[in-house]
Structure formats: C-alpha cells, structure tokens
C-alpha cells in the first residue's frame, strides 16, 4: 500500500480512479444510451447522453429482424462446453500438479504457464491450418478446443493454488479410509475448492463469450456463428451501419454474463486472490 498521508495525495488518487472508472464505464453507458435512441438522434452532431425520444424499436428490430437468438444459442453452447470442459480438465490437472510428486512436474507446469505468454492472435496462425487439415475448421468442437488452449493454463493455475493449500493429511486420511484417487477428488478435493471451480468456470465462459477473433476466423457457416461475429456481421456491414440495433443487441448479449457475474462475483474475487494472503 502507498501511504497517503497528505490530503492532496489522496485527491490525486481519487482523480486517477475517477478517470479510470470513466474509461471503463463510458462505453457501457453510451451503449445503453444509444440502444434507446432513434436513428436520427444517433447521428446528430451534438449527441446527448439521455435520449430525447427514447424508443424500444432497436430492441424489437434486434429480436425480430435478425438471428440474434440463434447466435445467442450458439454462443451459449460453445461457451458452456468450453467452460465445463475447462473446469473438469483444470481440476484434474491441478490435482495432479498440487498433490503428486512426479518427474518433470515443475518443468511441465512452467511449460504450461508459458503457453499463456503467446499472443492470442499469433496462435491463430498455427491453429488455422491445423484445423483445416484435421477437419475441425468450421465446427463447434474446433472452436471449443481453440478456446481451451487459452482458458486452460490460467484455470489450472487458479485451481492449483487452491489445492496446494489443502493439507496433505486430509488426503492421507482419506487414503487410510480406503478412498481411491477418483473418490478423493470427487468427495474431498472438489467440494473444498468450489469457489475456485466457480472462478474457473466464469473465467473460461467469459473468455469464449467475449471472443470475436477466433470465432470470426474459425467459423464460416452462418448457422454456427456465435454472438461476437454475429453482431458484427449483422449490423455493421461495409455499406450501412445500424448502430441502434447493434447497441441493443450488445445490451442483450451482455445481460446474461452481467447477471451471472453479479450473482457469483463474491466467489470470483475470492478465487482470484486465493493463496495470495494466507
């Protein structure tokens, strides 16, 4: 912590925070505002924050004139699959890393974490031909696998830091009681790291829900399209831009995540800071 002994130092901090919050929230506020504006108001040279003549028309159009529900469904399928798979795989791997001593454990862990260091877009260059060659191109399975590459390392690390803090004696007691490793993981470890599991699930869900680049590149058929590319390609063509409906669509697709996140944020924060303070 920085000691803020003087009043003016505290003021500087407050201003910095205000600027930061402004940059974070302004686009969101603008999105909501725009989604209620009729077209003529959107393109006014001196825009207002509160719409003069608020309207639901953009929402109505987003629902009736576009395939947004289909994109939502696709997004939900891909994101849930990714989140579920990531959580299961990360739990298994983290248990291995945290509670078993094997040759190459540290090296493997390091390798896995360093995979995280590659820029997101760079990996796409190698994923693309791999998917084309293996038939995973333009499939939901392929997209889920591509997301796994990114969601998994961080997820393993989050769960690792949870599990490594569980006392070994607990596992030994279960072994003495006759529990096999599968049962120990299911009955003992997982119930004790539920906040970690929720964190990992949310993290990987948001990852894929918010993605544009991979989904846009790896999915070409319209009926498999997820929300990111769906919104982009529906409303923002080369010739015309329907900002009102685009913003309404954006609000609609943000809502589920905002809702889930606000319900579970307590666990999420706990999850990210676990092991930091003991």
């Amino acid at each position: 912590m920085i000691p803020l002994s003087h009043a003016h130092e505290r003021w500087i901090l407050r201003i910095l925070i205000a600027v930061f919050v402004f940059f974070l929230l302004a686009p969101v506020v603008w999105m909501i505002s725009t989604s209620f504006k009729p077209p003529e108001e959107i393109f006014r040279t001196s825009p207002s924050l509160i719409p003069d003549a608020p309207t639901w028309r953009n929402y109505l159009r987003a629902f009736t004139e576009t395939d947004i529900l289909k994109y939502l469904g696709n997004g939900l399928i891909v994101s849930s699959l990714n989140a579920g798979l990531t959580t299961v795989l990360a739990a298994l791997a983290a248990y291995g890393f945290a509670k078993f001593r094997f040759r190459g454990r540290k090296g493997l862990m390091l390798l896995m974490i360093s995979a995280q260091m590659f820029p997101y877009a760079v990996l796409l260059i190698s994923i693309y031909p791999m998917f084309q060659w293996s038939g995973l191109f333009d499939t939901r399975t392929g997209l889920v696998l591509a997301y796994l590459v990114f969601a998994l390392p961080a997820s393993i690390y989050i769960l690792f830091s949870y599990m490594v803090n569980l006392p070994d004696e607990l596992i030994e007691a279960a072994r003495m009681d006759g529990a096999g490793e599968g049962l120990i993981l299911r009955e003992l470890i997982l119930p004790l790291v539920i906040p970690g599991l929720i964190t990992v699930f949310l993290y990987s869900f948001m990852w894929s829900w918010n993605d544009l680049l991979y989904s846009l590149t790896l999915i070409t058929s319209e009926d498999k399209r997820t929300i990111g590319p769906g919104l982009l390609l529906t409303f923002l063509g080369e010739m015309e831009q329907d900002w009102g409906a685009a913003m309404a669509g954006s609000v609609i697709v943000s809502l589920p995540v905002v809702l889930v996140f606000s319900l579970l944020q307590r666990f999420f924060i706990q999850g990210l800071t676990a092991g930091a303070v003991k």
């Binding site: 006392p167 004696e169 607990l170 030994e172 007691a173 279960a174 003495m176 003992l188």
Partner: peptide, 9 residues
C-alpha cells in the same frame, strides 16, 4: 491413523 492436525473432512 489419528493425525496431528486431526485431518477431519
């Protein structure tokens, strides 16, 4: 076995 830390679930 009875452990030092009790190791209760």
């Amino acid at each position: 076995m009875v452990f030092q830390s009790y190791a209760l679930y």
